[in-house]
């Protein structure tokens, strides 16, 4: 097998002859640079490669708690075990990103450009979380409209124009929504029901303390690690807090008090394969 991903799924040259890139003027170059025999046809993202799993986030009375683990999976292979999937943008925003890791890194770059651009302005702290979210929504929606999406689902959290906590979702299609509890990927199925037990409405949120919210998110990360095969027990946990006007970053948090006794009864894990 040819291990170059670009050749996956392509007919073997030895059998079928070289790929005819002249078909439809196929080229991955900009039209002005088209060479006569471009090596590859023009390609759009059709599937993610290395992926990060769920991001989960919940509102509490003074802010937001968000968590995302540090794994980058290549199919079922744990390709990366130390990816940071919650990124800072300016001083008032964090973005948790799941989905394709290379697209994550691209987003990281353009959001950093955005923060740098903003810092050229005369005043400080202008880049609110709500602005970052809107920008991200524009970027993702425009890319899906080109049928060349950035394969990610993101949760943006931080402070809005009024200095109030902000938390909103946006994904590869440009769909965005806000809710007291948010999760991407598997988390939308596994974590959301748990989060909604404590934070279903803004009334619930008013009663939720920071400590409770952190524990709730930690519980969810544990459940996700139990059940989501593409997850890791090492994750980053962030707390946006308006009383301190600060965003705390806790890196390398471990899932604790896990019980794996049952594992020895599972065929292929504890029991020998039949």
């Amino acid at each position: 097998m040819n291990h170059d991903p670009f050749h996956w799924g392509k007919p073997l040259d030895s059998v079928y002859g070289p790929y005819n890139t002249q078909i439809a003027q196929a080229s991955n170059q900009r039209p002005e640079n088209v060479r006569t025999n471009a090596e590859f046809p023009s390609m759009h993202t059709q599937q993610p490669m290395i992926t990060g799993t769920s991001v989960i986030a919940v509102r509490y009375k003074d802010g937001v708690v968000m968590a995302a683990d540090n794994m980058g999976a290549y199919g079922s292979l744990m390709k990366l075990d130390d990816v940071e999937r919650i990124i800072r943008v300016g001083s008032e925003t964090i973005v948790g990103i799941s989905g394709d890791i290379s697209d994550l890194q691209y987003l990281e770059r353009i959001l950093d450009d955005l923060a740098v651009e903003d810092s050229y302005d005369m005043e400080q702290d202008n880049l609110k979380a709500s602005y970052v979210h809107e920008y991200l929504t524009r970027v993702l929606y425009n890319r899906r409209s080109k049928m060349d999406p950035l394969w990610n689902a993101c949760i943006v959290a931080g402070f809005d124009e009024e200095g109030e906590p902000f938390m909103k979702y946006v994904d590869l299609l440009g769909v965005s929504y806000a809710s007291p509890s948010l999760a991407t990927g598997f988390g939308a199925h596994l974590a959301i029901p748990l989060l909604r037990q404590k934070a279903d409405t803004m009334k619930d949120v008013e009663k939720l303390t920071k400590e409770d919210a952190v524990n709730l998110v930690k519980d969810c990360m544990k459940i996700l690690f139990y059940r989501d095969a593409r997850s890791l027990d090492k994750y980053t946990l962030c707390v946006v807090d308006k009383t301190t006007k600060n965003i705390e970053f806790h890196k390398d948090v471990k899932c604790e008090d896990m019980k794996w006794d049952f594992a020895k009864h599972i065929t292929g894990y504890g029991l020998p394969q039949l």
Partner: peptide, 22 residues
């Protein structure tokens, strides 16, 4: 649309479904 976080092993190719009904 395919959830963004599912790894690619389950299908050979999942082309982008550019809309999601709501």
């Amino acid at each position: 649309a395919q959830p963004a976080t599912l790894a690619s092993e389950y299908s050979n190719e999942i082309p982008l479904q550019p809309i999601e009904h709501r």
